[in-house]
Design a protein around this nucleic acid. Structure first.
Lengths: 105, 105
DNA sequence: TATTCATATGTATATCCGTTCATATGAATA
DNA sequence: TATTCATATGAACGGATATACATATGAATA
């Protein structure tokens, strides 16, 4: 896995930073966490995160652009799900990090 | 590892979002990547990321607050290193994510 | 203890970003 | 094809934030 993390091109660094940035907003993170359980349409997502349809859609557009989610149509609704399993792994890892920190204090 | 990512308290969600946010800035990410290779003093870090001593120190303060780095003194210098191995794992995971995406296109 | 040198901190500013409100889009249904 | 309903998009506003500049801090050395 970890092969020379230090030697990473500028453009790749930018892209990775964007990835983290997208996960670094509470609203977007809650969307991702919600989707880690099951695929959901926009309406349900916005209910889940307690945010307007518009705000939710704006954030989903960003998540799409960062390849963190994918969309499929089901009837009138668009159903969102996590793009791949790496996202889930990173979420899980971040939670473990937090947990251990708490145990130390 | 992945136990019910959906059911996470609001405060924990905030804390995790902060973690990602800290890694989501290009400058801070480059700092973390640099530290993944070896521990470094502030001067060397600022040279490495091509940024003023002040800007670097400001960002290091944020990374400290988020428990992503730790500091030890060596003579006159303060030596920074990654707080733990989770950070390294998350960095590595994010790079893999990017790589696979590229291969698909 | 006085001085120095590495690092931290305060303030200001320009830019970025998340949300809201209003409206457009367009696939699915009648 | 006309209509409807879910979602996307555009513009704008307020708050957050990264950097620069000036200065403070404080441990290490003389």
């Amino acid at each position: 896995m970890s092969h020379r993390l230090e030697e990473i091109s500028e453009s790749e660094c930018q892209r990775i930073a964007l990835l983290f940035k997208m996960m670094g907003d509470p609203t977007r993170l809650r969307i991702l966490l919600a989707l880690s359980g099951s695929s959901l349409c926009v309406m349900h997502i916005s209910e889940r995160v307690g945010m307007s349809q518009s705000a939710t859609s704006h954030q989903l557009a960003l998540l799409r652009k960062a390849d963190l989610v994918r969309v499929t149509r089901s009837g009138k609704s668009l159903v969102y799900s996590l793009a791949d399993d790496h996202v889930r792994q990173m979420l899980a890892l971040s939670i473990v990090h937090g947990k251990e920190k708490r145990d130390h204090e």
